[in-house]
């Protein structure tokens, strides 16, 4: 599903040039659950932004679903992104002025899905996440765990093939964190490919494979042995 070849990202300001990713090459198969670990500033989030088509690499190639996407314009990236990729962020990134229902509905609006179909799909996914009873609440009225479950609902409502999660339990207590990880695990078992950036070794345990980054480069790769 994902293949990168010498992916490099350099951030330039007037005075400083920072290489966030340095010739990273790796692949992710369909249905895999991959964790990306490493210390702060090692390039994890930059990698996730590139994989999520939120940004273009400085050099190198990125193939997504067997199509080269490393030099697409923002409009083309947005088109690929909205129909294929779901995002889960550490700070949930819900829109505070919209209700739970409206937040989850957003990706479907941008996909041009009709109102009645949207309502059905949002209600289905909220029920799956155990959030249906909170559909009319606003994010600030929810606990952290509920907010993240809403964010996961929003990430999967468009039935994406890939979910990118950036520290999904980073702002949650352990009980809520585990709840969210179980949800992601369940989605993966149902066939969704997941790439997750995390600091937490216990979260990484859910992944079948862990990639360790350091100073923008892959240093080790661990594959979990089946018990």
């Amino acid at each position: 599903m994902i293949q990168t070849n010498k992916l490099t990202k350099v951030f330039r300001t007037d005075e400083v040039e920072t290489t966030a990713l340095n010739e990273v090459s790796f692949g992710v198969d369909e249905g895999e659950f991959v964790a990306v670990m490493g210390p702060s500033g090692c390039g994890k989030s930059t990698l996730l932004n590139l994989l999520g088509l939120l940004d273009n690499p400085t050099t190198g190639e990125y193939y997504f679903m067997e199509e080269k996407v490393s030099n697409l314009r923002e409009k083309q990236r947005a088109k690929k992104r909205k129909s294929n990729i779901g995002f889960v962020f550490q700070n949930f990134n819900l829109i505070d002025e919209l209700t739970v229902f409206e937040n989850v509905e957003l990706p479907l609006i941008y996909l041009g899905i009709k109102g009645s179909e949207r309502k059905k799909r949002v209600d289905d996914v909220l029920e799956q996440m155990g959030m249906l009873h909170r559909r009319k609440h606003y994010p600030l009225q929810l606990s952290g765990g509920q907010q993240q479950r809403t964010a996961v609902a929003r990430a999967i409502v468009a039935r994406p093939k890939l979910i990118l999660a950036d520290e999904p339990t980073g702002n949650l207590d352990s009980a809520h964190g585990e709840e969210v990880m179980n949800l992601l695990d369940q989605l993966n078992q149902n066939g969704t490919t997941i790439v997750m950036v995390t600091h937490s070794p216990s979260d990484a345990e859910y992944a079948r494979r862990t990639i360790n980054l350091f100073d923008g480069q892959i240093v080790t790769e661990n594959i979990k042995q089946a018990l």
């Binding site: 409009k75 995002f87 829109i95 957003l106 990706p107 941008y110 929003r154």
Partner: peptide, 16 residues
């Protein structure tokens, strides 16, 4: 800006 970023991530076009 944050809301616009979220909407863009979720697939909103410039005209949206």
């Amino acid at each position: 800006t944050r809301e616009i970023g979220i909407r863009r991530t979720l697939g909103a076009t410039l005209s949206n």
